[in-house]
Simulated assay, not measured.
Amino acid sequence: MFWKIVGVVALAWVALALIGALFEHLFGILVVSAIIFGGYLLYKAISSGKHDDIMKV
């Protein structure tokens, strides 16, 4: 029974370590993609503003 408990604890520890490593790397990818998406939205907002000025003239 003791070794079953030790095995379950070790398995849970390894699983949490893997999940933590995945989240650490995915967080970096999330930040980079948010910056790129924000830049895209900013570009679209600026470029659509120029077209609205041309249409009004």
Rank of each mutant, 00 (worst) to 15 (best):
W13M: 04
A10D: 04
Y40A: 14
V9S: 03
I36R: 15
G7N: 04
A12E: 03
A21H: 05
A10R: 09
L22A: 13
I19L: 08
L11Y: 02
I36W: 05
A10H: 03
L18N: 02
I35P: 00
A15R: 02
W3P: 03
M1Q: 07
A15L: 08
S47W: 06
S33W: 10
D52Y: 15
F27K: 04
V32S: 08
V9Q: 03
A34R: 11
F2R: 12
V6I: 12
A15Q: 03
H25I: 07
K50S: 08
G28C: 06
I54F: 12
G28D: 08
S33N: 12
L42T: 05
V8F: 02
Y40F: 10
I46W: 00
D53F: 02
E24F: 14
V32M: 05
E24H: 15
M1L: 05
L22C: 10
K44G: 00
I35Q: 10
G38L: 07
V32W: 00
A21V: 12
A21G: 15
Y43Q: 13
L11G: 08
W3D: 07
F2E: 04
K56N: 14
V57E: 15
F27S: 06
I19Y: 01
F23C: 00
F37I: 10
I35A: 10
I36G: 13
G7T: 01
I54E: 14
S47E: 08
I19Q: 05
I5K: 15
W3K: 07
V9N: 02
V57C: 09
